[in-house]
């Protein structure tokens, strides 16, 4: 459902989550990364390289905008239907943070610089109009954002509660954030055509700070799906609260004269 861009432990790692049909699986098992592939059809990756706080406006006292808020705003602005979307994910570049530059101690992480929508064809310049029309008002107190192609919901799943178990070799728990996202997608019953994208991101340099993100169109059985996902988590010895990312982006405490202060 989305190519994953970068991952701090290995910036070249990428993943694609998709339906498992027999024809696709046969081809997928034989395709080697780096091998030649057909040049058509083209895939358009539309970068919107603006920070979320420039695309989405939040006033003092409101939660700081997230990269998911920016994605929802971009999806709504561009009227991208999930059935026509190959991926919706952060534009996140690999960077090295200097823990001690003098001693040459650097750690790999990713720096989120915007959002990307991937479609079978380049949608054609909407990003300039999107930037010109920004900032957008994206509600922060409602889980669902209404867009021209239907409701949009961004689910973020915290990885920390599973990281230690996965690292210790516990084969019952998802082995990475993207696998936790697959658990969410499957137990919720989200069809690929109702999903804009799956992604994962690791802010900072600790695996425990990683999270998975699913951007999807909720259906009438969304609440029932969440109950199924909760039961799945219970079978792993977890609760929904264990995978609730919360809002690490903090709260806007001051906004005036073009200055914005966020407290975390």
């Amino acid at each position: 459902m989305a190519p994953r861009g970068v991952w701090a432990d290995l910036p070249g790692r990428w993943a694609v989550v998709h339906a498992a049909t027999p024809a696709v699986l046969d081809a997928a098992r034989t395709h080697l990364a780096g091998a030649s592939a057909p040049t058509d059809p083209k895939v358009g990756h539309t970068f919107l390289s603006d920070h979320g706080d420039r695309l989405v406006r939040r006033e003092a006292g409101e939660p700081a905008p997230t990269q998911g808020d920016a994605l929802a705003a971009a999806i709504a602005f561009a009227s991208v239907d999930p059935g026509s979307c190959l991926g919706a994910y952060p534009y996140a570049l690999p960077v090295q943070l200097a823990l001690n530059a003098v001693a040459g101690r650097f750690v790999s992480t990713v720096q989120c610089l915007g959002v990307v929508l991937s479609t079978p064809h380049a949608p054609g310049g909407w990003q300039d109009a999107c930037r010109a029309a920004s900032p957008f008002r994206v509600p922060y107190d409602a889980p669902v954002i209404m867009g021209p192609t239907g409701p949009i919901r961004v689910e973020r799943l915290r990885w920390a509660a599973l990281a230690a178990r996965a690292a210790s070799g516990d084969r019952s728990v998802p082995a990475s954030p993207v696998q936790l996202a697959v658990g969410f997608v499957e137990t919720m019953g989200i069809l690929p055509g109702d999903c804009w994208g799956v992604a994962e991101l690791q802010p900072g340099h600790e695996a425990s700070s990683a999270y998975a993100q699913v951007v999807y169109r909720p259906g009438p059985d969304d609440a029932a799906g969440r109950e199924r996902f909760a039961r799945y988590l219970t079978s792993l010895g977890l609760t929904p609260g264990d995978v609730d990312l919360g809002h690490p982006e903090g709260t806007v405490t001051f906004r005036r004269w073009g200055v914005r202060v966020v407290e975390r």
Binding site: R13, H18, A33
Partner: peptide, 11 residues
Amino acid sequence: SPWVAVAERGF
């Protein structure tokens, strides 16, 4: 619920 496959590669 659809069956999901994941390709994860790297360089």
